[in-house]
Amino acid sequence: MTDSASARYKYLQKIGEGVHGMVLKAHDLTTGKEVAIKKVSLRTKHGEISLSTVREIKALQHCDCKYIMSLLDVFPDMTGLSLVFDYMPHTLYSILKNDSIPLSRSIIRSYTSMLLHGVKYMHSIGIMHRDIKPANLLIDDNDVLKIADFGLARIYSQNEDKSYSPQVASRWYRAPELLYGSSKYGPAVDMWAIGCVFAEMLRRVPLFNGNTDIEQLALVIKILGSPNQKDWPEMDSLPDFKKIHFSHSKGESWQNIFPTCTTANEIALVDGLVQYNPRKRLTAAEALNLDYFIQYDSDVLKSISKF
């Protein structure tokens, strides 16, 4: 740690620890604000440069969106680098796990709108996150949601035929093309994950919660039905598609999956995102143009105009 960094930040407590580093809560003595400091290693346990650290910093330096965590400061310490962010007291994961915290339909819509706006911006500048999940969605005391943890993010180009690792995204939010071992994919993997997160907010339990990749695929097939070539022509070319065989499934209706109070507009959003064929999944911009959001925005404007 440098002397200037040591003098500026007063560490308060450890607030998290994951694969890519430890997170500490601190007080910024210069601004008076509480911040979160993520300590990341510059090298892997094998002594190689940590690509996740490089990718996270590179991705965050490209982002300027109020629904994406801003990188406030970077400084070296004895183990690697410290990345400084605004302190966000909650994660969507912690809220979903706490039954005493209600999730109203308006809050779910607000969180989903912010998530989609953040991802829309991210995809517009050529970044796919590849690890959208409740634990990586931070929320402040004013219910503002921001996307965090860009350790698996990649800068991509629609015009380049690049290969990527299929071993990304947490299993419960991993798109089927990844589960089938595809190395040729794009930002649609984030859209599948958003669909799973939205469904989880509506149900308070994960949509697909497999303990292994095989079980995860089995749960997807149970709900969506067996994939077919008409709807997903590329499925036969996926590396592991012919290696894994499941009993034929007709699938289940979304009405049976969700609580009786779930609306048709909410189900339409899930259905538009949780699609086998990545080409058929809604983009973030398309999702934000659904009646689910348009009608809500119209109602808000009408209520404001009365005052």
Rank of each mutant, 00 (worst) to 15 (best):
Ile294Met: 05
Gly16Cys: 06
Val168Met: 08
Ser6Trp: 03
Gln295Asn: 10
Phe241Leu: 13
Arg204Thr: 01
Ser253Gly: 14
Thr260Ala: 12
Gly16Val: 08
Pro176Met: 09
Leu81Asn: 08
Met1Glu: 14
Leu115Ser: 06
Thr79Asp: 08
Glu177Thr: 07
Ala268Gly: 02
Ser110Gln: 01
Phe75Lys: 02
His245Met: 02
Gln158Lys: 15
Ile223Pro: 07
Ile101Met: 11
Gln13Phe: 03
Val119His: 01
Gln216Ser: 13
His129Val: 07
His129Lys: 05
Pro227His: 10
Val74Ala: 04
Leu288Met: 07
Gly251Cys: 11
Val40Arg: 02
Pro239Ile: 05
Val168Ile: 15
Tyr93Cys: 06
Lys280Glu: 10
Trp254Thr: 01
Cys65Phe: 00
Ile294Ala: 02
Ile107Lys: 05
Leu178Ile: 09
Gly18Ile: 03
Phe241His: 07
Ala7Trp: 00
Phe85Arg: 11
Phe241Trp: 13
Val40Leu: 00
Tyr156Asp: 05
Ala5Ile: 06
Pro166Val: 08
Asn98Ala: 06
Phe208Val: 00
Thr260Lys: 13
Ser104Asp: 00
Thr112Cys: 03
Leu219Asn: 11
Tyr156Ala: 02
Glu48Gly: 09
Ile68Phe: 14
Leu12Thr: 11
Val168Asp: 09
Ser226His: 03
Arg154Glu: 14
Asp28Thr: 12
Leu217Ala: 15
Lys58Cys: 14
Tyr11Cys: 07
Pro134Met: 08
Asp131Ile: 07
Lys33Asn: 12
Ile294Thr: 11
Val40Cys: 14
Asn289Thr: 01
Gly126Ala: 10
Tyr93Val: 01
Leu145Glu: 08
Ser124Tyr: 07
Asp213His: 08
Thr30Trp: 05
Gln216Tyr: 13
Met128Asn: 06
Tyr11Phe: 12
Ala135Asp: 14
Pro233Val: 11
Leu269Thr: 00
Phe198Cys: 00
Gln295Ser: 00
Met201Val: 15
Ser52Asn: 08
Trp172Val: 01
Pro187Lys: 03
Leu96Phe: 06
Trp254Ile: 07
Leu179Arg: 10
Tyr121Met: 04
Lys184Asn: 04
Ile37Trp: 09
Ile68Arg: 10
Thr53Pro: 06
Val54Tyr: 04
Val144Thr: 11
Ile194Val: 15
Pro233Lys: 05
Lys280Thr: 08
Arg203Cys: 04
Glu286Leu: 05
Asp3Asn: 10
Leu202Asp: 02
Lys222Asn: 15
Tyr121Arg: 04
Ser165Leu: 04
Ile108Asp: 04
Arg203Lys: 13
Lys280Ile: 04
Met191Arg: 03
Trp232Glu: 09
Leu103Asp: 05
Asn289Ala: 03
Leu24Pro: 03
Tyr185Cys: 11
Thr91Leu: 11
Ala169Met: 07
Arg130Ile: 10
Arg174Val: 07
Ala188Leu: 01
Ile37Asp: 14
Pro233Cys: 02
Ile223Glu: 09
Glu234Ser: 13
Pro134Asp: 05
